[in-house]
Write a protein that binds this DNA or RNA. Structure first.
Length: 464
RNA sequence: GUGGCCGUAGCUCAGCUGGUAGAGCACGAGGUUGUGAUCCUUGGGGUCGCGGGUUCAAAUCCCGUCGGUCACCCCA
């Protein structure tokens, strides 16, 4: 009978030790930033009733889900494709006893039945961050600031990544003032979303159907708009690119471009972002609209500065969503960041730690590697010393090879990224070597555990 | 779901217009002077993604299929 070989399902990943270390590094970075900003960790089931997802997104979503029924069962379930419905369910169930705002985060796995491509897989991790019960621009800014702080902790700068912010409510109000019917708004948003996938001429032509001039199309193409911030709110007075009537149509044009209203609408948010110290990362950009329906206010995406790669993160305000899932009317703002694009962009920018760095940051490096020099007395002490180190809370390893060549075993200790090597000389003494520096000292075997602890603490590179 | 490109050792690949598989690195074992090096010896590992077809003969040519990748659709 021929052996059958099994492959991992399409769009999934196997996590060998180094991959697992990278995953843990990312999730720990997410966790640390969340906790520093006062968010609490939550989670829910990996699968939910299918209905939970069709409520918000309609039946069309089903083809994008992994759904199933239990053999012999009636109900249909789906592996979770996102966290927001679960979050809304959790909040709605205890809404009366939860504080306002409630600040929650999680870093779980999600599943989408799409064909994988660059930056998109069928199973992935996503950091979710939500502030529920606070309608203020300060909450929007806090969410974005948490996201930015996390990215900065990985080594990104405002030159690497840009946070592009738009405002659905302000756009809608602006459209209304231009006399565009409510029913047309979604079509315009869709058109804006697809702008990058068509020639500029086509885009202008399609926009014209909604009464926009080619000059307005030019404004949307430029995207970034100018927003003035009062001095004293973070010391920044002006941000963004000046778009003047002269640049896009001339002062005498019949339909002059006036974005004053829009700039006024987002200024409170800009002031909060300046106060949070992240204004350097921000562009107010009319071309960011984010997919579908439920956003009601601020929307944002984090992009690699040159526009390469997919969005690293995205989110926005959804003030109707908790209600939609059966809770009391509650304003909320949230975001998600997937691990796949994040890792790609980190590698693009040279910010992904190397093997040693990943093991370090994931907490996987051995504290001590114990070597016997091969004499009978030393050999006898090897296992007791390893055991004693482990009892003392240290990550201790030893070789499984038969050779007792000290040079080879030191190489093995270094290959395994151990911090300290202990070479047992005989039944009573050993040498303790700090591998990073080569410094070596003789100690009695009885003192070895204590000496290793001290060496480990005083030589540990800081984990930031 | 649709299309382009790609599948040879753990990795990077060689193998020409057909003549039943190789290199480097890596890995295992051992040696050399007991300190992360160099060096030497040696070992394991592939029904060439899978299945069919053409042929005396297929890693090589043809078809299908599976997988990967990139793009479209979609992107919560």
């Amino acid at each position: 009978m021929a052996q059958h070989t099994f492959q991992a399902p399409t769009g999934t990943r196997d996590f060998y030790p180094l991959d697992a270390a990278q995953r843990r590094f990312l999730t720990e970075s997410w966790r640390a930033a969340s906790i520093r900003h006062g968010f609490e960790e939550v989670d829910g089931p990996t699968f939910e009733h299918l209905d939970l997802y069709t409520v918000k997104s309609g039946e069309g979503i089903v083809s994008e889900l992994f759904s199933f029924t239990r053999a012999g069962g009636e109900r249909t379930y789906a592996l979770r494709p996102e966290f927001t419905p679960t979050l809304a369910r959790l909040f709605a169930a205890k809404a009366n006893s939860l504080p306002r705002p409630t600040k929650w985060f999680c870093t779980p796995t999600f599943f989408r039945a799409e064909r994988p491509q660059r930056g998109r897989l069928r199973e992935f991790l996503q950091w979710n961050l939500d502030i529920i019960g606070d309608a203020s621009p300060a909450a929007d800014a806090e969410l974005i600031a948490t996201c930015v702080t996390m990215l900065a902790s990985l080594g990104f700068t405002p030159k690497d990544l840009r946070v592009k912010i738009n405002h659905r409510a302000a756009l809608a109000e602006w459209f209304n003032r231009r006399g565009i019917a409510e029913a047309e708004h979604a079509k315009i948003l869709t058109l804006l979303d697809q702008k990058g996938k068509m020639p500029p001429g086509d885009f202008a032509h399609k926009l014209a159907q909604f009464g926009f001039t080619p000059e307005m199309a030019e404004v949307f193409q430029r995207g970034i708009i100018r927003v003035e911030i009062p001095a004293g709110a973070g010391g920044v007075t002006v941000m963004g690119e000046q778009v003047t009537r002269e640049q896009v149509g001339g002062a005498g044009h019949a339909d002059p471009v006036d974005l004053t209203f829009f700039a006024e609408a987002v200024r409170p948010l800009a002031i909060e972002l300046a106060a949070a110290g992240v204004i350097d990362w921000i562009d107010f950009d009319l071309s960011i609209v984010r997919g579908l329906a439920y956003y009601t206010g601020m929307v944002f995406e984090v992009h690699e500065a040159s526009g390469a790669e997919r969005a690293v993160a995205g989110g926005g305000r959804y003030d109707n969503l908790i209600e939609l899932f059966g809770g009391p009317p509650t304003p909320a703002v949230g975001m998600g960041m997937g691990d796949v694009v994040l890792a790609l962009v980190m590698k693009d920018k040279g910010l992904m730690p190397d093997e040693g760095g990943l093991l370090e940051r994931a907490g996987m490096r051995p504290d001590v590697f114990v070597i016997s020099n091969g004499t009978p007395g030393a050999e006898q002490q090897l296992r007791p010393l390893v055991a004693a180190l482990r009892r003392a809370g240290m990550h201790a390893r030893h070789t499984y090879k038969t050779t007792r060549n000290v040079g080879k075993l030191l190489k093995e200790a270094a290959d395994q990224r151990a911090h300290v090597a202990i070479i047992i000389e005989d039944e009573a003494t050993c040498s303790l070597k700090v591998l990073a520096t080569g410094a070596q000292q003789k100690v009695s075997l009885a003192e070895a555990v204590g000496a290793a602890k001290i060496a480990r603490v005083t030589t540990a590179p800081g984990v930031c």
